[in-house]
Amino acid sequence: MATLEIKKVRKNYGTLEVIHGIDLFINNGEFCVLVGPSGCGKSTLLRMIAGLEQITKGDILIDNQVVNNISAARRGLAMVFQSYALYPHMSVRQNLAFGLENLKMKIEEIDRRILEAARLLRMEEYLQRKPGQLSGGQKQRVAIGRAIVREPSIYLFDEPLSNLDAELRVATRVELKALHARLGNTMIYVTHDQVEAMTMADKIVVMNDGIIEQVGAPLELYNKPSNKFVAGFIGSPKMNFIQFDYLPNSLKEKAPPNSISLGIRPEHLSIKDENSLLLNVETVEQLGSDSFLYGTTSGEQKISIKLNYQTDIQANQSIKVGFKLDDAHWFDKDGIALTS
């Protein structure tokens, strides 16, 4: 049980700065997801929290204690690695016990914690096996179990689901969420997958290029992205952006001043005349429950539309697509969201 505070943290590799001063506060018991494209510095930030990377500037505080110079071992955190990093020469039981033995814990206590974790993660039957004899999902459980037995104040996850197949990923996602509900610990989770971020997080931190773009609850980010990057990153398919100059005059009038572009999510577009754009359909994808239309509007602006019904619209057809003004996002020349 702990809070985490990051104050003006910077990280340099030689002369190259990769984290440009980050401030973040994570509450006790919060499930916080760091999300961003690859290379945005989210893993580096997590490793700095863990103590595996030195901090160039700034402070990291756990429970209001500065931990900058405290080694990874003494911070009381546990981390689940992307590759699981199980010790290949030890059995599952030894893998779980290793960290506790290093803390000179009593054998009875070690056994108790291992049994508890094994029951929680349903891995009693393969405690004696070596990691090489386990499937991907089982290894994942062991990796999480290794964190659980430590009873850490904060759990750190570094893209833990990226090595699982799609089906298992969804199942594990649900399990992780349930685990968080049961344990109630603070968890920090790094991913590049916005679906994971949306489904699991209490709080999402969107990072790009070494800075934080926006912090907020999943729906807050979806509904009120504070800039064009967040708007484009959260939501699938991506939000459509149309340059202001190519908008019909009827729409230009309704835009807030200084608007440079309009953002509208594919699922918010529908085939109607109100606030409409003329669209040349190029591709139609029918998924049964949903239909996706891809096309261009004036000025070769690319548009995609998601319809939640089956449609008879064909490629090369021209249609009018409209939206509710409330669903529109307007951005100025720096990409900052404007309120209409």
């Binding site: 863990a50 103590g51 595996l52 080694s71 990874a72 071992a73 003494r74 955190l77 546990a78 981390m79 690695f81 992307q82 590759s83 990093a85 199980l86 010790y87 290793f98 960290g99 290093n102 803390l103 290794r146 430590r150």
Partner: peptide, 11 residues
Amino acid sequence: ELLEAARMDAA
């Protein structure tokens, strides 16, 4: 990563 895991495990 194995070494880092061990470091996290207070080794």
